[in-house]
Design a protein around this nucleic acid. Sequence first.
DNA 1: TCTGGGGTCCTAGGACCC
DNA 2: TCTGGGGTCCTAGGACCC
Length: 451
Amino acid sequence: MSTTMQPIQTNLFAQHTVNGNYPSMYAIVDCNNFYCSCERLFKPHLDNKPVVVLSNNDGCIISRSDESKLLGVDMAGPYFLAKPLIKKHDVAVFSSNYNLYGDLSMRVMDTLRAIIGEQHVEVYSVDEAFVDLSMFPIEELDRIARDMKATVEQWTGIKVSIGVAPTKVLSKLANRLSKKNKEKSGGVIVLDTMEKIKKALAITPVGDIWGVGGQYAKKLKEQWFIDDALQLSKMSEEFGRLHLGGVVGVRLIRELNGIASKDMQDELLNKKMIATTRMFGSPVGDINDIKEAVATYTSRAAEKLRRQHSAANIISIFVVSKEENHNATFNRGITHSRYTTLPTATSFTNELIKPAVAMVDGLFKEGTLYKKAGVMLSGLVPDASIQGNLFIPETKNNGRLLMDMIDNINFSQRDDVLKFAASGTTRDWKMRQELRSPRYTTRWEELYEVR
DNA sequence: TCTGGGGTCCTAGGACCC
DNA sequence: TCTGGGGTCCTAGGACCC
């Protein structure tokens, strides 16, 4: 081997830089402990106090403030296991309040769009957005990122961390490091030289790379002794193809080497699948309760469907039974599912509820307890009944008007004021949400009072 | 007693068609 | 005596994400 041989990423960077600059630079803007921050925004007395937010049904912990993390409260751990610790340290606990989080998320994203321009912002999740900064000179990026952070925090009250790098995977890596050492980074890390990138890769465990989950991390360590991101970055693209999910793995290796392989995506306006699934508040053994739940989830899914002006060709439902011979560590239950291909694509709640409820009969077993059910709509196509279509009988168009009316009323109330009879009215199966905070920003009667 | 919900992308393999 | 090959669609399942 000749001594002039360079590590592979050196060569790749050399090929893909222009005048020493990188052709692309992405920022990931990530809200810190988002759900906890939202809860705190209206309860200033919780600043610097430990806070956690629970999943639906108060099952798992899905957001922790820094103080809770320090106390050792596990992420995604079951609430009941953490309860002693939470009690002992007087941690503030909230059921999730998605109306509130959705509204604050929108404000954060609108702020980013206002600063950088709509076309350069890609909303990635409720608390994260990629921002394309390729058009700015590289030496300006640190200042721009810090300005962005300060503005978002000032306008919305939500604290954010920012990572900037030539690819999305590297920007996520930078973002993670900025959070690990907030004092030093000030919540912003810019990886704008190869030296910085290498250093960052070397101190990132392979399982903390965006796109490497538990399965891959285990495999990489056990079979190839790959522990950190720098080691993985030196593997060939073919290695990625063979062992990390085909083209997904190839892209991952390239991104680690500074070659942007995940483009900015247009806002995903139309989903390809729509699901509404829930755990029950307590196990359910009555077929009529299951039918009510399925009908309700179908209504909700159909609303989502109409909101994106789609119609579904396929509806499937599933139920999860409580496992009888369960052991303590693995009690996930068994999933039973059915699907129906509809005669024509539809977005009408009543046309979807009928087959959905009918499928329950095929799945339900007397004497079994169920803990979860769900409805999925797929085979989505544009909704032909949206504009009055001459070739569709008039009754069909009336159906569309009825759906619009129901959606408008329900949307304005943000609740199920109008629903179909099949959804029932008792709802024994409803999820628990004992600890929900008021929906300050979306319900008039729950508005935050300033004194 | 008790462990969320809603998505994405990709691949393999079978069915079917010409 | 002897039975192709390529394309496309669909479904199941595995991985990942927040």
